[in-house]
């Protein structure tokens, strides 16, 4: 009975990695600028549609991933420069309204250009099989997913801790006004961070299609899960987001496997109790 459980937990872990990629950008932008961006899922959807379109043109799957990252990042920074920056000083609720409006528009646009149907994705055969190790099946695709997410985490943490730009980001997250006063160009730092975060969402979107599919409603499918990861992890914390996403993915999978009757409840119960215990999230400072 150990082997299947390990397999299930492995799948949950991989799923958590996916959630991490989708939510880390939102966590950092929320932490730094207090900007509530509910259109974050739309940038993930942009990445997903970019991947599907390019594969339709005959591109190999791996080549579409950097493009999904780039296109989502570039589009997001366009919105950041023209639209979002106008509401940084507005209340949270105004930001919610603006970004929900944008999310609505993105759903309508996706339905207009791609139709309402499911987008089929065909991965290369070697990604679709599974490896057997000690009698346990490990999906190659999920192994790949975990590898990508860990690489991204390593890069992010490294960049944050050891580069000048990272120091500026940390300063801006800690105290935006103080950082500004010390000569950090918070405006530019934020634009770059925003593009990076949305790009990662785009990458996550492209990687998610294989596991959950893609239709115009994708923007909203993950919204609740992403919010849970951000809140539980703590604003502006990469390690927190990672831990929260893993916790969520694994407890979700374990719950479904051991107590399927509790299936849908468990993830929300975990969230509510964690937040009552630590209202600012696991790694939150405020």
């Amino acid at each position: 009975m150990i082997a299947p459980a390990v397999g299930v937990l492995f799948d949950g872990f991989a799923y958590g990695m996916l959630l991490f990629l989708l939510s880390v950008g939102l966590s950092v932008t929320l932490g730094m600028m207090n900007f509530v961006n509910l259109a974050h899922g739309s940038f993930a959807m942009v990445g997903a549609y970019v991947a599907v379109s390019l594969m339709g043109l005959g591109w190999p799957f791996f080549a579409t991933l950097p493009c999904a990252f780039l296109v989502a990042g570039v589009i997001s920074v366009g919105f950041e420069r023209t639209l979002f920056r106008r509401v940084y000083r507005a209340s949270d609720l105004q930001q919610v309204l603006l970004t929900i409006g944008l999310a609505f528009i993105s759903v309508a646009a996706a339905a207009w250009f791609y139709g309402t149907m499911q987008q089929p994705v065909r991965l290369p055969v070697y990604l679709r099989t599974y490896a057997t190790f000690m009698g346990i099946n490990f999906s190659i695709y999920r192994l790949f997913l975990i590898a990508v997410a860990l690489a991204v985490t390593g890069l992010l943490v490294g960049a944050l801790d050891y580069t000048r730009f990272g120091a500026q980001v940390r300063a801006a997250v800690d105290n935006q006004r103080m950082a500004q006063g010390l000569g950090v160009d918070v405006d530019t730092v934020f634009a770059i961070t925003f593009a990076l975060g949305s790009g990662l969402a785009g990458l996550g979107g492209a990687l998610a299609i294989e596991i959950v599919g893609l239709d115009p409603n994708f923007t909203f499918t993950y919204l609740i899960y992403v919010l849970i990861v951000v809140a539980v992890g703590g604003l502006g914390s990469i390690r927190g987001s990672l831990l929260a996403a893993i916790l969520l993915g694994v407890s979700d999978a374990a719950g479904k496997y051991y107590v399927p009757t509790l299936g849908a409840f468990l993830i929300y119960l975990v969230m509510v109790s964690l937040l009552l215990w630590r209202p600012s999230g696991l790694f939150g400072r405020r």
Binding site: I224, A231, V232, V272, L275, L276
Partner: peptide
């Protein structure tokens, strides 16, 4: 009793959680 203990994002998420639990 639960809701008034928390603020900000935690408040939003806990009310959301209560809503989703009741839905289920």
């Amino acid at each position: 009793y639960i809701v008034v203990r928390v603020r900000h994002l935690a408040l939003i998420m806990i009310t959301l959680g209560i809503g989703l639990l009741l839905y289920e």
